[in-house]
């Protein structure tokens, strides 16, 4: 079951992770909106160690305005970044 729905505001966790993971530093701690639900996939942190990746995580595409990611962004306000984030790296941003 997907914890978040399309349109939900979410925050990408800014925790540190020593194992292989697929969350680049530049998006950690940023807020965005769920643009779509992409897939359900195993966790890279344990798959990379030859384990089973369980529990499987919903993968979301998160829409983030560029002007929020980069102070002094050169382009117009509408420009955006979309990135796939596994559910265990997302927190609700509604509270």
């Amino acid at each position: 079951m997907a914890r978040f729905a399309i349109g939900d505001r979410v925050r990408i966790s800014d925790r540190e992770e020593a194992r292989h993971h697929r969350v680049p530093a530049y998006v950690k701690g940023h807020e965005g909106v769920v643009e779509r639900i992409c897939a359900a996939q195993g966790q890279p942190e344990t798959l990379a160690l030859g384990e089973d990746g369980e529990p499987i995580q919903t993968v979301y595409r998160i829409h983030i305005p560029q002007t929020r990611l980069w102070p002094g962004y050169e382009g117009p306000n509408g420009d955006s970044l979309e990135i796939e984030i596994f559910e265990h790296w997302l927190e609700s941003a509604r509270c």
Partner: peptide
């Protein structure tokens, strides 16, 4: 400038 540039960072098995 009136067109949104949308960058997709491909981080999962997509």
């Amino acid at each position: 400038t009136g067109v949104e540039v949308r960058v997709h960072d491909s981080t999962a098995e997509l």
